[in-house]
Amino acid sequence: MRVLGLMSGTSADAIDCAVAEFSEAGGRLDMRLLWHGEQPWDEGLRARILGVLPPATSTVADWCQLDTEIGQAFGAAASAAIAEAGPVDLIASHGQTLFHWVENGKARGSLQVGNPAWIQAATGTPVVSDFRIADIAAGGHGAPLTSTFDAMWLGETPTALLNLGGIANVTVVGLSDGALTGDTGPANCLLDAAAHRFHGLPADLGGALARAGRVDERALAILLADPFFAQPLPRSTGREYFDGDYVARRLVDVTLEGADLFATLTELTARTVADVINRASVRRVVASGGGIHNPFLMERLAALLEAPLLTADELGLPSDAKEAYVFALLGYLSATGRPGVVVGAGGRAATGATHPTVLGTLTPAGSGQPAAPAITLALHNQEEA
């Protein structure tokens, strides 16, 4: 089965696309990485996506329009991917997260928009989407959803797989009591917000701003005192918590600006990631996501982590395409009726759900199919039975 995975993360910088071919024999699943690429967002649409995220306010009309326009953008990206990589049997679309609802450490819901009907209409291919909510309904966090991919790929050795997107998340595999997964906190989101607000840049490009500054230890201590960082895994969060005003809310009595702001936020990411991973006693850390292109952040992580830091590229998986390949696998597992999350401690799913669940909902192929033969429907009431 050939599956196209589509993913846009919390940074909303592009739609990542990846095509994989799956085959099974003798209890082994082979995944051939056939093609990957990305479709940059239209700048106007990206601005509107970021513009509805907290702390901004928005209307139901905004979200309805984005659901359609993002779905159409995903459909165009899928069509372009298929034109280049060849036909696929299934599309697995994560969509674009607008809100991940967590209260008192428990996930209550998660909204990804980009209606799959537009993807199906553009490609004539069935689409699996809405991957997170089944896990949340079973008591889990619905995030991160990389545990099955990570355990199947590198689970023979105690390994922490780190994703540095807008939010940083980690999955630890190869442990005797099952996988462990969760969000560690901000990776790029606070840095990106500051770069845009103060310099008109999409990010701290190359970590240059942070490298020119010094860590403000008082400010860092206040940020690290956020109760979120003391929560055990599994845990989840998003840009609705670490939003563009997060730093100002936390640092009411501290002035943090210029290059020191970027140095401190980079250190916040590095320390919160290292704190989680170093407790797991792993033999290696394998990183992916946009943050690996920030050399200063990678230097700080390497200095703080107790295990060697590698990138997914060094182990044969394109780092920038990892999440799209993850969703290709999740789509295949859904289509074949298998759970998308592995077992963690205590027999629960790694996300904290009471049990691993089959993820996603199906939008079947419809256009181009032969019309169903006309039939009549005869209704019978209970008294006639």
Rank of each mutant, 00 (worst) to 15 (best):
L6V: 06
S11G: 09
A12G: 00
A20V: 00
F22H: 04
A25V: 10
G26M: 04
R28D: 12
M31R: 10
H36K: 05
P40T: 05
V52S: 04
P55F: 04
T59M: 05
A61C: 11
C64F: 14
L66F: 13
T68S: 13
T68C: 14
G71N: 08
G75I: 01
E84S: 14
E84H: 09
P87F: 06
I91G: 02
S93N: 10
H94S: 09
G95K: 00
T97E: 08
L98N: 08
E103I: 09
K106Y: 10
A107T: 14
R108C: 12
N115W: 01
A122H: 10
P126L: 08
V127M: 05
D130E: 10
D135I: 02
I136L: 14
A138E: 11
G139T: 04
G142E: 06
S147K: 10
S147T: 15
F149H: 08
A151K: 12
M152Q: 14
E156F: 06
P158N: 03
G165D: 12
G166F: 11
A168G: 13
N169W: 11
G174C: 13
G174M: 11
A179T: 07
G185A: 09
P186Y: 07
P186F: 10
P186I: 10
C189Y: 10
A195D: 08
A195K: 12
D204W: 12
A210H: 11
R211A: 00
G213M: 11
V215Y: 11
R218W: 07
L224M: 12
P234R: 06
G238N: 10
E240L: 04
E240C: 07
Y241E: 02
V247L: 03
L251M: 06
T255W: 09
L256E: 11
G258A: 15
A259S: 14
A263K: 11
T272F: 03
D275M: 00
G290V: 13
I292Q: 10
L297V: 09
L301D: 03
L301R: 01
A303P: 04
L305R: 03
P308T: 07
L310C: 08
L310F: 15
D313T: 13
L315G: 03
L315Q: 11
G316I: 01
D320Q: 15
D320S: 14
A321C: 02
A321Y: 00
L329N: 11
L329A: 12
L330V: 02
L330P: 02
R338E: 09
R338L: 07
R338Y: 03
G340Q: 05
G340F: 07
G344A: 01
A349I: 01
A353L: 03
T354Q: 15
P356G: 01
V358L: 03
V358C: 04
G360S: 06
T363F: 01
A365T: 15
P370I: 12
P373E: 12
P373C: 08
P373A: 02
